[in-house]
Amino acid sequence: MQSKKEREKVGREKLQRIIETCKSISDRSLDPFLVDVKENISIAKEYLPEWEIPEDLCLDAETIHQLASVIKLQSEWVRHRSTSLYTDPFLLEEKLARMPKEQVVETFLKAWHPTIELEQISLHSLAEAIRYWEGLLPLKERWKEFSSAETERGLATREELVQQRILREKAFSEELDTFWQQLKEKVKEKGDEGKILYWDFVGAETYDETVDRAFMTSFLITYGYATLEIHPLEEEMFIKPYEKPETKIGNKQLISIPIAVAVEDWARWKRGELK
């Protein structure tokens, strides 16, 4: 005697098999009458009382849906066979395989009536084109509008590059180290249990500065100077500095967490509405 669990397992397998068969019939344009719809429906019917969880009921619904698609294909198949266009694919394939290509072409040409389409310039369009040409400004005049002012070449100093934010004042690693120390100090000052709310650390007086801090924080986390602690239910996010940089990742699965630092979020934080 089969246990209920075993019976359910067998039932699921049978329904899966029916679904697969129906799908391959419609995908590969096979003869839909290869499926014994009546028998498959009786299988679905037999196992229906066993299903209790929604997944199994969905599987049953999918089976019926696929069988209905096969019935639709069967009806189309019958309709097609009854039309004058019906021809046995095997018979046609056989014929084509034995015909030399010259004969295939000769036959095709009797049923092919190619479209006529012309592309020709007319006097009217020529006149139109000449009018357009006459009104068109010379290239040197049209391009004048877009040419940029010429500037003399010269050397830029390091200070200028820093000012233009092309170079940073300190080396990146040095800067990251300073930022890590800043985080540790801030946690000591305002934090609780060795961590601080993400926005309390990242948030700054201006939005530009906030984005800059968020950018640096992302490197602190990536390079193992700190970690993120997320409490999804409370919608709180903490940043927790390590005493020493964690270089070993171990067996932990690394995940990326996108954090939006939009102007609206920053404004909400300023108003004290965002944790």
């Binding site: 004058s84 004969q103 036959t107 009797k110 049923a111 092919w112 190619p114």
Partner: peptide, 24 residues
């Protein structure tokens, strides 16, 4: 669309089925 415009499908199938195979 171009087959629908240019090819008489019924005639093509009929012609193919009716044609006597020529020796290759």
């Amino acid at each position: 669309w171009r087959t629908r415009v240019e090819v008489d499908q019924k005639a093509l199938v009929d012609l193919l089925l009716r044609s006597e195979n020529k020796v290759q």
